[in-house]
Amino acid sequence: MNQGRNLFRTLVLILGFAFLYIPIVSLIVYSFNSSRLVTVWGGFSTKWYGALLRNDQILNAAMLSLKVAAISATLAVVLGTLAGLVLARFGPFKGRTLLSGLTTAPLVMPEVITGLSLLLLFVTMEQIIGWPAGRGMTTIIISHITLTMAFVTVVVQSRLSQMDDSLEEAAMDLGARPHKVFFLITLPIIAPALMSGWLLAFTLSLDDLVITSFVAGPGSSTLPMVIFSKVRLGVSPDINALATILVAIVAIGVIVAGFTMSRQQKQRERDAQMALAANQQMIESVKKG
């Protein structure tokens, strides 16, 4: 019976992962297809990679997307950390419910609504105060910050709620003022969460199509916008090549992260042994007197 359950588990996992990964694998395989007809195999070729590298439109869009993603992720981490701190540490205050609503709503808000409302805001602001003049990188960055800071807030808030708050009290008890407590204790301890928050924000920004389409001006097409306008017309092998490059970058990132993690794991095991040995020493010193 136990075996039956194991078999069921394995089967579920195989089917589940097949569903998740077959599309990605197919993208990669066909990126090396020399035929223009993507799904009809015409022999191995890397010509679409060459075509991709000569496509200025895609390269420019990619540059813009990377720039937007880096800037908006950084600012989103700052704002999201503040919001997470307020929600996790400031206790109940007037307007807390509104703030927590405002930070979770963008997580699920359909992007067409967010995009439309941001565009209308920018247009109105331009009418009233003359800024932002036209739409382009600035408006895209502001929109992406608004979207992605919600995700950072959730990450930071949950990390802070796991953190023992007597650590912060201890620092204060030892004479550190609140802002020093934040920079010397809280920030270093939640730093890994900020890192993953940044990566999440970066990826979301790099990937966003709908909101960006609303708030981008002429001449500021991001990578997803260019991809969308191409794939709307059907499959196109250079997009497969682009996808393969993206997957490769992510895969390398994951392998590197996995490698460091396993090294840290080993370090932790060594440390645990050290603590065990230390305990032994301790007991002996207690015995001695």
Binding site: E169, A170, M172, L174, G175
Partner: peptide, 20 residues
């Protein structure tokens, strides 16, 4: 008087040792 200005120190139940 706030805690950071008191001539008082505390040992916490969880010890609250800064892990970093």
């Amino acid at each position: 008087i706030p805690p950071y200005e008191r001539p008082v120190n505390m040992m916490f139940q969880s010890y609250a040792i800064f892990p970093h």
